[in-house]
């Protein structure tokens, strides 16, 4: 019967196996495109030294290295600082400015500044519509948090200041637009605590 035909089919299949094993294309190395290595928060106030808080996580969330903080100096008491946040992916060359991505999907991102210490307060100074072509009304006025104001009181000492960036959060949930993270949900892109001083 077809035995011979069948066996020849099989040997063709065998050749196919053999030929397949030669496609040894060397894989291309990639970096995680979503890595955030660096966040720098600059706090400026008239007549005061600019304070920068930053961390550098050389291998992102994937690698074992813990992020290393750099804090330029103490904040001054009873001062209102203007804050601006810069987020980088320094595994790329030149480093990629992640701010652009956050601004591009402003409605999906929001920073939170969290502290219980020394009476420090913060307020958002930006809105989604600052970064998009949308009209400044309704939900487009929700904060993103790339810029903010931070006010210290007369109390001095050590404080913890935590910065959180979340994506795909619920900005309409109670308190979220005012900077309360409790009901925000979403996934964190950044979650880091700086140990600062107010003098």
């Amino acid at each position: 019967m077809n035995t011979r035909k069948f066996i020849s089919m099989l040997s063709i299949a065998g050749l196919f196996v053999a030929s397949c094993s030669d496609d040894d294309d060397a894989p291309t190395p990639v970096n995680d495109e979503e890595v955030i290595t660096t966040m720098t928060v600059s706090l400026t106030a008239a007549g005061e030294d600019t304070v920068t808080l930053s961390f550098f996580d050389e291998d992102g969330a994937d690698g074992p290295s813990a992020p290393v903080p750099t804090i330029s100096g103490p904040l001054s008491a009873s001062t209102t600082y203007t804050g601006a946040i810069t987020v980088l992916n320094a595994t790329e060359n030149p480093p990629e400015l992640v701010n652009e991505e956050i601004e591009g999907e402003a409605d999906e991102h929001q920073f939170f500044y969290i502290t219980d210490d020394l009476g420090i307060t913060t307020t958002y100074t930006d809105q989604e519509c600052d970064y998009t072509d949308d009209p400044c009304e309704g939900s487009f006025t929700n904060p993103v948090g790339l810029t903010f104001e931070l006010t210290t009181t007369a109390t001095t000492g050590a404080a913890q200041l935590r910065f959180v960036l979340r994506h795909q959060l619920n900005k309409e949930a109670q308190g979220v637009a005012d900077g309360d993270i409790v009901n925000a949900g979403g996934s964190p892109d950044i979650d880091y605590v700086f140990n600062i001083r107010v003098e």
Binding site: D23, P27, T28, V30, N31, D32, D62
Partner: peptide, 21 residues
């Protein structure tokens, strides 16, 4: 014979499982 191909250029994420034969 088995070949694994991880398309990292498509994902933009480092390969959790590498290419292998």
């Amino acid at each position: 014979y088995q070949n694994n191909f991880a398309d990292a250029l498509e994902t933009g994420v480092r390969r959790l499982i590498p290419d292998y034969d």
